[in-house]
Amino acid sequence: MKHLLEFITKHYPWFIFIVYVIMSLMMLVNNNPYQQSVYLTSANSVSATVYEGISSVTNYVHLKDINEDLQERNALLEMEVVKLRDEINEYKLLLPDTAIQPRLNQYKFIVSHVISNSISQPNNYITINRGELDGVKPEMGVVDQNGIVGMVEVTGPHSARIISLLNPNMVLSCKLKNSEYHGNLVWDGVSPEYAMLEQLPKQVKFAQGDTIITTGYSAVFPEGVIVGTVASKASSAKNSFISLKVKLTTNFSQLSTVRVISNNMRDELKELEEKSLQQQEGKKK
């Protein structure tokens, strides 16, 4: 016993060392609950302030390209508005009595700035300068003018951390435009410009350059948001599924202004899901 005590007092720094290694291993291996806590991520107020300062300087660098993107997107939307207006007028002539259902209010956008962003890590995250007090909640979708950016993971009062689409933990349900076949979009960790659309049924027809859009099956993203275009077919002839290499439309190295999508129906949908789960469990009992 005396020897043991002596051994411990003599070598206690090494015990501390082992404790630290185990702590960091735990942080590495399980993403929660340590990683989920706001204090240990970039969503905490100190690192958010630092990043805000840095980004206020570096934001100017990509301003020209972003402006061009915005102009292009604006032109596209304007054309769409004109087209839709014409269509609505035509329908109104045909069916003068029908009232149009107010469905558009389901989604609301919260505009925010990216203050920190990484594309070189195996797991990438983005920090934005809007948080709980601005109405940002976990599991909200995030888009920019070009396409999908990611999903809110942790929120602080004035900042939030987003799982980037360039993160293998982020799985997005997507489909080919003009087709109902859907698959899962996952980043394979190689290039920030490409991701893989997996588990598509073999019979799906596609051509290079076809547009990939979201399915809207979850409450995170509305249906039809552009994700990317088909670059090539990835070889996987093993089973009845195929994978596509998708060129992402979002330029992750130049993110600056993004929009967080707030879905008014989200709580309702969640409640419904929980209710049905409870009912199922009740039946089992």
Partner: peptide
């Protein structure tokens, strides 16, 4: 020494969202 090293790594981890990599 170990405590300071761990704290340094942890702070860089918090900034970089790398969760334990630098700490370790």
């Amino acid at each position: 020494l170990f405590s300071l090293a761990f704290a340094m790594g942890l702070i860089i981890d918090i900034f970089g969202n790398t969760s334990g990599m630098h700490a370790m």
